[in-house]
Design a protein around this nucleic acid. Structure first.
Lengths: 71, 71
DNA sequence: ACATCAAGTTAAATATAATTTACATAAAGT
DNA sequence: ACTTTATGTAAATTATATTTAACTTGATGT
């Protein structure tokens, strides 16, 4: 019944020339720890950062983040 | 060059039986002021609230929120 | 074997901004 | 006029997204 946000940032990073967390962080204007945290679903990013990320990878935001039920 | 998040919550509210801000807030589990604020682009909602909202209206999140350039 | 560098993880602290509380206005009905 | 309903907004608070900092691991070079 509860839902949780998940993402496929890691997959996208590797599809984009095996971009490192640090490089992605730099491109987004945040620290690499922020990238690591959202990639590991430690906490969700702000909506703006989510959009920036999707933009950067030329993806639709709903193709990067999903809101699915978990047990 | 700068981008800004916008939304069509108001339109969606009216398409859904002219739902009031208060009714939407109740359904989302937030106060109506939160709905008013995000509807008026005062500030973006959290990613989770954005997803809840899209879910409620059975829309894709990118059909509710857009990240467009503003002059 | 040792040192260095790049990448990842995590905890704690901070700063931001998302959300609430409280007050105010306008329209519509009685 | 008065009440009710819907919306708007400022200020304060809270929550949490982000940063700073420290620790770990693996690879590479000497």
């Amino acid at each position: 019944m509860a839902k949780q946000i998940s993402n496929n940032i890691r997959k996208l990073r590797f599809e984009h020339d095996e971009m490192t967390q640090a490089a992605l962080a730099e491109a987004l204007g945040v620290t690499r720890q922020t990238v690591a945290a959202m990639e590991g679903n430690k906490y969700p990013p702000s909506l703006e950062l989510a959009f920036k990320l999707a933009d950067l990878f030329d993806e639709d935001i709903s193709d990067v983040f999903e809101y699915n039920e978990i047990n």
